[in-house]
């Protein structure tokens, strides 16, 4: 069943269009920055972008930071929101379940598909970012954001790989919202928009001083903490909290998705 779902994912034009767009955005940004030579001042604009003019190696991380706030979560929510609700809307859900494909099994297969999509997106965005950066800005040893000694290449690749993993885990949190909503509605668009509403709400509250007490529990709060991976020594505190928070969201929401799906009347 997992193979079937993966085949659906890769044969679907939409998958590649959304990944193409995801990869395209950082490339466009890079071209503008390179052509004008105007990088955002430090502390403004997407993370890392102020440094990339002098060092293209960092552009892999910069590319992730560019798509992270909006573009990547939307793409992930489209795929996750479509998982069950899309089958329901197309009417294929009833045929899959009477095939029979067990409900738990179908849900697991869908989850695997979403994870694969997230990994694919993150790897391709970071990979394209790295290549673009190397071509346009050249490569140098990675400086630490805290100043001091540049990182050696082993350290640099570890940190870039770990940021990819971190962004991937953050997106899994997003995907869990999408998947859960996908099991309770027959409208894939509803699931996607519902997930977006959660993220927008979380983003707004995260900026709001009055909501300070709940900020550390907001799903988007630690998203950009992977920046800390490029400090020397690595500032693990927020990264660890971010991973733990996402793990809780993933476990709770997947549990809820399972409970909702196996007890649901399929009337679509």
């Amino acid at each position: 069943m997992i193979a079937v779902e993966l085949r659906k994912l890769v044969t679907r034009p939409r998958t590649w269009i959304s990944i193409g767009l995801l990869v395209g955005l950082p490339v466009i940004v890079a071209v503008f920055v390179e052509a004008t030579g105007v990088a955002p001042r430090p502390g403004e604009g997407p993370a890392f972008l102020s440094q990339v003019l002098s060092n293209g190696t960092l552009y892999a991380a910069a590319a992730l930071a560019i798509v992270l706030p909006l573009f990547l979560p939307i793409a992930v929510l489209v795929v996750a929101g479509d998982a069950i609700a899309g089958e329901a809307q197309a009417g294929t859900l009833r045929y899959l379940l009477t095939r029979p494909v067990g409900r738990t099994r179908l849900l697991v297969a869908k989850l695997v598909t979403v994870v694969v999509f997230v990994l694919l997106a993150v790897i391709l965005v970071a990979g394209a970012g790295y290549i673009t950066g190397a071509l346009l800005f050249g490569t140098q040893p990675l400086p630490s954001l805290s100043g001091g000694q540049p990182l050696n290449s082993g350290q640099a690749s570890f940190r870039i790989a770990f940021s990819m993993l971190y962004v991937g885990v953050s997106m899994l949190g997003v995907a869990s919202f999408g998947l859960f909503l996908s099991t309770v509605t027959d409208a894939p668009l509803g699931a996607t928009l519902g997930g977006l509403a959660v993220l927008v709400t979380s983003g707004v509250l995260d900026q709001l001083g009055a909501a300070g007490s709940i900020r550390p529990y907001l799903p988007t709060h630690y998203w950009l903490s992977f920046v800390d991976l490029f400090r020397d020594p690595i500032l693990w505190r927020d990264v660890e909290r971010g991973l733990a928070l996402q793990a809780v969201y993933v476990v709770v929401l997947l549990g809820a998705s399972w409970a909702a799906f196996v007890t649901r009347d399929v009337t679509s």
């Binding site: 044969t11 009417g91 045929y95 009477t98 095939r99």
Partner: peptide
């Protein structure tokens, strides 16, 4: 079974749909 009309993945051919359907679940 055929319940409330057939349903397919519309971007695929009929054959591809049946193969996918056959591959899902014990067949």
């Amino acid at each position: 079974s055929l319940i409330e009309g057939p349903a397919y993945y519309r971007h695929m051919s009929g054959r591809a749909n049946l193969r996918l359907f056959d591959a899902a679940g014990p067949g």
